[in-house]
Structures are given as C-alpha cells and as structure tokens.
Design a protein around this nucleic acid. Sequence first.
DNA 1: AATCGCTGTCATCTG
DNA 2: GCCAGATGACAGCGA
Length: 663
Amino acid sequence: MQNVKKYFTEGLIQFTILLSLIGVRVDVDSYLNGYYSPLEINNGPSSAYIQTPFHSLRDNWDGYSVHPKCPELDYFFACRRLLDEVRALGSPIRFPTQLSAWLVHQVPDSSEFREPPNSTSNINVSVGLLSESTGEEANDTELLAVDESHTAAQLSEPGPYPSTGACEIPNEEVEALKGRMEEDEDEGRAEPVSLTQLTLSSTLEHEGLLSSGAPLSSPEDPPPPDIDQHWSQFLSLPIYEFDDLHPLVPQQLSDLDANISSAISQDVSLRDAIVTGSVYDMIPPRGGVRTLVARQPRGPLFRLESTNSSHSDSSPGTTTGLAVLPYAAVVNGTRNGSSSHGALEGYLDEAVFDQINLLGLEGCLDTMDAQLLGILQGIYPRVLEDLDSDSGLSLESSSQGPDSPGASEVSSSSSSSFFEDEGGATGYSSEVDSLPSKCIDDYNTWSPVDLSESVWHDHSYSSPAFSQPSATTFPHKAIKEEPFSDEDDDGEDNEDRELSRDQLRTRALHVPFSATEIVSMPVEEFLELLEGRGLSPAQVALLRDIRRRGKNKLAAQNCRKRKLDAITGLQEEVERLQAQRNRLLRERQHTAKALGAAGQRMEDLSRDIFSRLRDSSGRPLTPERYTLQCEANGRFVVQQVRRPSVATTTAGGKTDKRKKKKP
DNA sequence: AATCGCTGTCATCTG
DNA sequence: GCCAGATGACAGCGA
C-alpha cells in the first residue's frame, strides 16, 4: 500500500510538472479536494495512465464521507503541498506550441462562477491546441485523421490556429443548429435540474477566471444565445443529471441505440469515435463532402489502439464517449507538441490510449449520449472546433450518485482495467456488457450496506495486490460477473458451473472479492479488510474459510509436488545406488577372480620351486612344511611352516585378548 | 463395477 | 495463543 501511495503521489506530481512545463494547468488540487480530475496517474506496474477512480471518490459527490481508510486521504496533503510547490514555480514556460487543456470538476456553488461574456475560442471545454503544426502534422494527429471530412480538411490547413480555427460550417447549417439548440434550451430550462456546476480548469487564461470567481452560467440565469453558454450548460450537467434530461434527447438517440458492446473492439480513432458518433450523426450530409454519419453497422468504439495515430482511415465509430476526450486532448496535444516536448510522449502515448480503451464507457453512454447529443447539437460549430483542438469532456470526471447506473457501469468498467490480465482481455472487458444496473462499490467504499448491492463487477481496488494479478489467477471466466444473468447463454452457464465453491459462496454472501483475491492478498490487507469493513460475522467467517482453504489448497498442491519430487528423487537415488551396487559386485567378482588366479599361480610356482629344492639331508621340500615368502625387496625366502598347534595357540591368544578387551 | 490418479478439504503438527 | 505452512487422511470425481 505504501508503495502504491508513493507511486501515485510521485506520478501525479511528475505529471503535473510535465504538463505545467508545456502550459497545461492541471487542476490537481481540485481533485485533491475531492472533486474530479480527468487525469490521474496510476503509476503501477505498467505506469499506465488510467482514468480517475472516481468510484472511490464518489462518496464525496453526494456528500458521503470518504471512508477513513480511503487511500486518497493519505496522500492528500502531500499532493497538495507538492502541487503548491509546482504552482510556485511561476508561469509555465511558453513554447511555440501551446497546449491548452481543460479539466472539469465540480464546484459547490453554482452561482459562484460565471462565464465571461467573451470566452473566445478558449471555450470552457476546449483544448485550444494553438499549434504551429502544419497540415502534415495535423494529419498525424488523431483528430485530423479523417482527412476526407470537411472538418479535417479545415484542420489540415496551416494557420495560426489551425486546431482552434473554426471549421467552416455553412451559415445555414449553423442557423439550423442554433434553432435546434434553442429548442433544447427551452426543454432544458423546463427541467428542474439542480445542476452542480462544473468549473473548468482550462488554459492559463482561465486561471484568472477561476481565481476571480467568475461564475459560469448559472442554471437560474437564462442562458444567452451563446454557444459558449451552451457549453457551460452542457458542462454544468452532472452525469447523474442526464437521466433527468431525457426530454432533451433528440431523435438521434435511436441511432445510438446500437449494440454498444459491439462498439468496443472496433479499431477506430478518437476523432472518428467522437465526431462520427455524437456529432456527425447529426450533421446533415452536405453535397460533395462525405460526412461521417455513422449509419454503418456500429463498430466498436473503445478499442482505441495505441497506434491509432495512423488510423486515418479508420471506420467511423459510434456513440462517443466524451470521457475519452481529455485523454485525447492530452495525447494529441502531446503529439502536436512533440517537437519540443518529447518528454511527454513517453507518458502520454500508448499507455493513455490503452487506458482509454479500458474505460468501457458504453454503459454510461447509454444514458448520456442522448443528452450529449442534444447539447452538442446546439453547439455543433464549437464542438467541431473543440474536437479539432483535441478537446473533450470528461464524463468520468462527473461522478454519479451511488444509485446511478452509469456510475456503476463506469466504475466497473474502469475497474476492469485492473484485471485485464486475468482474462487476457485488453482494452475492454466484456464484463461491462452484462453489468447490472446496480451500484458497484469499490474496495475503498465497500460497506455492509453495499453488500446488499451487486458488487461483483467491482475489481477496482486500490490495493496493489489487486492491481497485480497474482500468480494464482483464476481463469477470467471464474470471475465473470453477472451470475444471475437472464441470458440464455450456454457459455455463461458453463462458466457458472465451473465456478468454484468459494466463488459461489462469495457471491451468495455478496463478498466483492474473488477467492483468488482473498487468498492472494497479504495478511495485513486481509486483516484490514476483515476489521475495517464492518463485515458481518458470516462474511468474516466465509472470508477466513476461503482464505484458509485457498492457502491449504495451495499448500497441498505444493506438498504433493514436493512429495512427487521427493519420490522421483528417491527413485533416482535408488537407481543410482543399484547401479553402484552392481558395479561394486562386478568389481568384487573380478577381484576375486584375479585373486584366485594369483593364488593358483602362486601355488603352481611354489610347487615347482619346492620340487627343485632339497634340504640338508637331500630330501625334497614339501609344500606342507615349507612356504615361499616374498619379502619387500622382492627376494623369495623359503620358510618353514609353523606348526598348527602354534598357530592355534596364537589365534587363541588373540581371541583371548579380544575377550579380555571387551569387558 | 472396480481401480487409479487427481484434487480439494480437513485435521493435525510444527516452527 | 495465533498464524502460516506442511502433511497425512479422506472423499469426490473423472478416466
């Protein structure tokens, strides 16, 4: 946990510094205040950027208190202090290529901020990419990938502000859109929306705006017929309020009701996804210009390849997840400024897109696209401008209430990024498809109350143990959620059948952890979980049993493996010893044979010698009385054999000595 | 139907 | 005393 906190804090500060160096004001302290920043760093194993774990902060949104063990609290003050130090560095360095980013977060008082009358091109939600990029560079950017579209054509034109330069939209079209916009405004005013304002930490120009407390558009104030005002209105809509704005939903929603799940894996660029899905769908085709109205089969949206910079010919995507826009802004802005800020590229290229892919925001899109489309419809020109400038709106920064389906789905989808390795699925987890519209609380906010909810899809734990798949990973299907899905899917049934008993138990008791997680987590975290979550005794017992059985299972496996290894080793040892024994037996036999041959040879030689020798009386020497002894110098000496009695006596004496020694 | 191997689980012991 | 790990024993399951 400490490492994660450390990495998170350091990564956050480093990222802030980097962004500050290129003119991006990252309003991290807003995030630290409990609001939301679309950018957050998870300096985990892959050092990839992830979306804000807003689900862990969701409790702040509606006045809930953050759990005392919420890890965000631990590095809150450190981040705040370091951020102040970063701010104390002074004005960011100006580079020819300026990246203007915006961040969206909530402010408590809706009347506190008011948008200045002339927000100019740096509208609240725009990333004014004041790039000196040429058309060639622009074509390299993701936003300029649709080279055949009129927007891209405009973007490709070099100019002082090619990115923010307004797209040439026909006046009649603008008027028509404004008309629709006004209609939407009327409907929007009819809605008793208690909007929580979102302030926009935008470019440097906006710092003054924020510091001066210039309020944005207030819901009470009649919105002036200004496009920026539309943005303000749009941005002032918390996501959970969008459900209240269904009257704003235009007919285009029907076009967006396509199978979202199928829109996840298509290789589509950010621009395509954004523009075609939410904007171009509403753009009437213009003569001679191929618009990107996504009437094609809805392609997956969020498999935004990390190499999508070259996807200029990517097929049009579907509904846009504007939550990806901040990332797109960062990425594309970084690319445009890569000439002078190459340092950022290492941080903001593939990892960002990989994490974007993991957002899986189609769940919230179902509830949001309509409103977004309706509002974007009224601000079409500026939308195009913003899109051209790699800007966007972070929907995820607008956390939803605990009961919001979108919140649960978004949080779960975000959580899937932590467990992408479990199933090998990258970019998108199909879990989102089957997510129930229930609240999914995360590890930090899990409480007994939450247990009544379905929390099975929430694996968005801040714990490193969770973010790092353990060595004993269940198959992805094992943690497949939606156990009680109504789907008549044989695969789902098979998955359920293959669930382990503990997993079924955990589901039965609504324990938001898989057996693997329970077993693999460090004992400190496990104890913290047991003590700090207010679990019921049954849940505690279940968790302990699961952990005990899981540990014992692994131990048994290890034990059996060791046993088999020992058996194998012993068998090898037996074979080795048997071979050695056989070798020694053969040697002994060989030696005995040689010894016998030598004895026989010695006997023959002795007999031959004795047959030629005579004693003093002239009689031949008999081997019974004489023997040949070979001395050390090689000489042979004939010795008279000792009497057997003497030998017996000698032997008996030795025996006696031994007998005497023994006592 | 019997057997064997594998696996999970429990009980127990040990450090 | 608690805990983790190791291990024997048992049962269930599938080949």
